[in-house]
């Protein structure tokens, strides 16, 4: 035993076996490549919607809410956008209306900060139209700078019975 150890040590450099290491490393690599999924960036729209009774108790906004109503056809596609009593052709027009109403000054205490929007929609309307409407009301992307300009931050959905009554 001792003889063999001494001879091997003297004759050649003890070499590390790298093959198992490479095997394991490649296995790990394959595992991570397989489980790799491109992460899509996600974002949020904040809504604060207390129960109707609680909301009625604290009227903290001096302005009447901007009411946007989305109408759907039978297939759930968008058929009309109503802002108050006006019918708007598309979401860009809704965005323009909101800008005209609250202005582009969005500093503290500005109209845009105080304003509130109520978005209601038909029950069978596809959800992405609602997100489009929220987008149109909540801000726009400046075409020159590419920056996002926020308009109305306070958005809520009215109670369904309340919305259908109108």
């Amino acid at each position: 035993m001792r003889i063999r150890h001494s001879t091997s040590a003297s004759q050649e450099q003890v070499e590390m076996q790298v093959t198992p290491l490479i095997d394991v490393v490649f296995l790990l690599l394959i595992f991570f490549i397989m489980s790799f999924k491109i992460v899509v960036l996600e974002g949020d729209f904040d809504l604060r919607m207390p129960q109707a009774s609680a909301a009625a108790a604290v009227p903290d906004t001096p302005l009447p809410p901007i009411k946007v109503r989305l109408l759907a056809d039978d297939a759930g596609q968008l058929s009309a956008i109503m802002m108050g009593e006006t019918r708007l052709p598309n979401f860009a027009a809704l965005n323009q209306e909101v800008i005209a109403l609250v202005g582009i000054d969005t500093g503290p205490g500005s109209l845009a900060e105080l304003a509130e929007a109520e978005i209601s929609g038909d029950a069978n309307l596809k959800y992405h139209y609602v997100i489009d409407a929220i987008s149109a009301v909540s801000g726009y992307v400046d075409p020159d700078t590419g920056k996002i300009i926020r308009l109305i931050e306070r958005i809520r959905f009215p109670e369904p019975d309340e919305a259908s009554a109108k």
Partner: peptide
């Protein structure tokens, strides 16, 4: 359907949840 989302949010409101975040793809 939007009605489904509204129903769900109403159920949340009935249980006193009031802060919502609607998630969208950026």
């Amino acid at each position: 359907a939007f009605g489904r989302v509204q129903e769900l949010m109403e159920v949340c409101q009935d249980n006193d949840f009031e802060q919502f975040r609607l998630r969208a793809e950026s």
